[in-house]
Design a protein around this nucleic acid. Sequence first.
DNA 1: TTGAAAGCGCTAACAC
DNA 2: GTGTTAGCGCTTTCAA
Lengths: 337, 337
Amino acid sequence: MAKRAPSRRIGIADVAKQAGVSHATVSRVMNGNFSVAADIAERVRQAAADLKYQPNSVGRSLALGKTDTIGVVVPDLENPTFQAILRGVSRAAARDGYRVLIADSSEVSSEEAILAGEARRRCDGVILCAPRMADADLRDLAPALHPLVLINRSTPVEDTPCLSADYGQGIQDLAAHLVARGHRRLVFLAGPEPSASNRLRVRGLELFMEQHPAVELQTVPGGVSFAAGHEAVDAILASGATGVLAFNDLVAMGLLSALHERGISVPGQLSVTGFDDIPFARYTTPTLTTAAVPITELGEMAWQRMSAVLRGDEDVVLGTVIQPEVILRGSTGPAPS
Amino acid sequence: MAKRAPSRRIGIADVAKQAGVSHATVSRVMNGNFSVAADIAERVRQAAADLKYQPNSVGRSLALGKTDTIGVVVPDLENPTFQAILRGVSRAAARDGYRVLIADSSEVSSEEAILAGEARRRCDGVILCAPRMADADLRDLAPALHPLVLINRSTPVEDTPCLSADYGQGIQDLAAHLVARGHRRLVFLAGPEPSASNRLRVRGLELFMEQHPAVELQTVPGGVSFAAGHEAVDAILASGATGVLAFNDLVAMGLLSALHERGISVPGQLSVTGFDDIPFARYTTPTLTTAAVPITELGEMAWQRMSAVLRGDEDVVLGTVIQPEVILRGSTGPAPS
DNA sequence: TTGAAAGCGCTAACAC
DNA sequence: GTGTTAGCGCTTTCAA
């Protein structure tokens, strides 16, 4: 037996008693079931209002077998990309009456599986952003998580919608832009080695190089943050490149800031590109050339897929790849002669 | 009767049957109750593993009368301030085994009350950031939301912990800094009229002006975003002021960007201050002088308060005011002579 | 130490 | 149209 609460919250039974009807009738009224006589319905509504009745959604969830909540697992709530995904999911889900439970793995990827499972137990489904989780782990985990939607994974998982941006194409487009402006020595300021989205960029650049044998490309280890870009400045300058392809906007901004401190002119001496087009990219000095990934929309689309699965749609789109769009701004220019 | 699901999820009953014990025993084992014989416990664990049993947390919540989840209501998931609060709450709550449900009112303040109530029904408590909600509405709402923790409200509400930053003092400190550098004509690039935190800044500036009769202060309408700051540039220039106190960092950055486009030198011709010290503030050009509000910590503290209330602590701290700290960077300098 | 049974708050099938 | 009742999956009291 559950706790004998001394002063329970108002429940459906209290309203039923107050209105002099059965609790089934109260339930009907609360759910807008019209098979209740108008006068009785009114009496029930009055009683509910008098008692300030708030339906208990846990009871409701148990009876209905659904929570109207989905979990979103992100590696880092501090990263604008994941904030944007979360925002997109949250808004789209809210329009359909669903709420979002957040699970932030704080970049501890060993936690992701646990968090995701935990989230799934409380929710009707989970949207998983786990860019660094090993493919094998993901495949093991997936069945227990279903309904599951994946974001930014290249791994196809059976019966699991997956949304991602074409980082490979985006970085090629940026490289092409630099080459068109006369740059022949490029450097890739890389993201985390194990990250799927970094691998896609690397692969894209490999393809690009095959088609542009005259271009030279180096790689400098970077990271995902301002600080990573800031710290990489020496290695970038040492590379002798005239064009820098940064892993993302954050890294590019850190680099821009360090270059400014060193008195290096951008794009006069060095052109720099970012990736993502975070809101701040248009406010840096100089403004940042980047490949825009409509990441909030990607979050919204993730909800569409989840919603389709929850509705039991027969043919949910499984693979979705969004094409980034190159945005030319002030941080790139012709190669110095 | 609930839906006759054709293929239910594995429940405690399945594990009980498989292990040849009652479901009460399974429950005891799953909850680490030691009053179960070691061999039986092992058998149960084995059965649970075989069946890949995942305890259903809705059932658990109903029996226990708690969800181990708290709701966080924010006006805008796009705003770095609220992202940081959310992050602070989420991480602190996670450490105590609680999860966070997000409710984004998308700046529609009429939605806040509904969202908050809705969140409360699904959660054990709610942390409310509703800077524009009218005091009276908040007081009406509070009892139904309890346990409730308020963020950035100056309204005291009975029995409700409230955390806020001392925006009034922070803006005075920034103004003092400008005056110390010789500025005599200041302009406040204001936030939203009805926002409590804007009113605190206004009040702070009034106090400041009383103590500095030689200083002239104008007010220009602004907003909360980049765009607002960017658009205000003409009004700012028209004011003839040499020092600008922007409502927050975002607004300051938008203004900085517009000033850069106009070729106005900062801080040579105009000094600009922000507020909040968002992560990007140290990477603008020039870097932004601002008043740092440790907002993630504020989120963490909000969880501490909530946690205390949930534990039934007798004397929870109700009012907490965090002092912003002025961070001097490159966007402010001596008044032009 | 274990099982039977009640109850958490709600929905819905069924009978009237 | 409305009430009775079973059941969602779990915890916990009580009795054995």
